[in-house]
């Protein structure tokens, strides 16, 4: 028994020590957002062992880092408003543009962004939109309004999946009502609360990571979804159309950030630099089917991805970034969300 103990103890020590060895990179990423081949390529080129965990919402990322995971990951991929929040929480490390030889590849319009002026802690990963898709076999009417989700026609009632995140779901609801984000106006919030309450009766499920699968399998006939994820669902055989609602949609940009207390800062920067290589950024786009924020990706893109209807909204399509609300307002939105799921 003692021997057994000693051996297992030894095995454990080697395991924990092994986890801190050099040549590692620990990524915290959205699920299904980077091709394994690209990670393998990085791994081979730089002789770095890559491990990756995944999350399914910006809020889950933040919560996990808050609950003690900060210091165990090198890079993460938060959306725009979450970069701002994480920066405010002191979770981000900064780098000099000179530390990334490919820094100049960042598209100009994504360089001076409001959530990270001058790109001190982050680089663009992909950008896209959040709206919803409808199965054309089930519903044949016109596809142009958020009312299909929040006040659905009979064909779609009880067959709708919505994203399981307060941020995106409540923002789309606000767009539908024409309420400004982070509003603290009583009447508007009551209206918002009433809307989601009544709409919930027509929803089948809440789920972000299942958003594609429910459309492909037919479990849902309509669902809130991200643009590229919808394109993938279409690619997997779902007869769906991604809707560009006249009330507007959410536009977002996901960013690779350098985390504070990163155990492998050097490798993190190598990885960020690697992702700014047009060929690699294009590989991500070809896989996830959003749009890269890097110059020169055009020649590497698959034509069906570059020209996908999901990534090419009509020129006059309205879109808004999600805003990070101040605490006193955020608690109201949290209350509406809890109220919704009670």
């Amino acid at each position: 028994m003692k021997k057994l103990f000693a051996t297992t103890a030894l095995a454990l020590i080697s395991l924990t020590v092994g986890a801190q060895a050099e040549g590692k990179l620990s990524i915290y990423h959205w699920f299904e957002y980077i091709p394994q081949e690209l990670l393998d390529k990085f791994s081979e080129e730089y002789d770095v062992e890559v491990t990756m965990d995944t999350f399914d919402s910006n809020e889950a990322l933040l919560a996990s880092l808050k609950a003690g995971k900060l210091g165990s990951y090198d890079v993460a991929v938060p959306g725009d408003y979450m970069v701002e929040i994480m920066n405010g929480e002191g979770m981000l490390d900064t780098f000099e543009p000179s530390e990334l030889s490919n820094f100049g590849n960042i598209e100009d319009k994504w360089l001076d962004v409001s959530f990270d002026q001058g790109r001190k802690s982050s680089i663009p990963y992909q950008w896209g939109s959040t709206s919803f898709s409808v199965n054309k076999d089930v519903y044949g009417g016109e596809l142009d309004s958020l009312s299909l989700i929040f006040d659905p026609p009979a064909e779609l009632k009880g067959k709708i999946n919505v994203l399981d995140t307060a941020g995106e779901t409540l923002t789309l609801a606000s767009l539908y009502l024409g309420i400004p984000q982070c509003s603290s106006d009583r009447e508007q919030l009551k209206e918002l609360n009433a809307l989601v309450q009544s709409a919930k009766a027509d929803w089948a499920s809440f789920g972000s990571d299942v958003a594609k699968d429910v459309l492909v399998s037919g479990d849902a006939a309509a669902g809130m979804i991200w643009s590229g994820f919808s394109a993938k669902a279409r690619g997997e055989g779902a007869n769906i159309e991604y809707v560009f609602p006249k009330e507007g949609m959410i536009v977002w940009m996901d960013n690779v950030v350098l985390l504070k207390d990163a155990p492998n800062r050097d490798n993190a920067l190598k990885f960020m630099n690697f992702l700014l290589e047009p060929e690699n950024a294009a590989a991500v786009t070809n896989y996830a089917q959003y749009t890269a924020g890097v110059k020169g990706v055009g020649e590497f893109l698959l034509p069906e991805v570059a020209n996908s209807p999901e990534s090419n909204p009509p020129a006059d399509q309205k879109g808004e970034f999600v805003q990070a609300c101040p605490e006193e307002v955020q608690v109201l939105y949290d209350a509406i969300w809890t109220n919704l799921k009670k």
Binding site: S57, S64, A67, D164, A204, S205, F206, G207, W337, T338
Partner: peptide
């Protein structure tokens, strides 16, 4: 379908999800 909170998901939500 994670449609309504149960005790388990309500608690989880406070530490891993939206509410914090």
């Amino acid at each position: 379908g994670a449609k309504t909170f149960m005790i388990g998901s309500l608690i989880e939500e406070q530490f891993k999800g939206n509410a914090g």
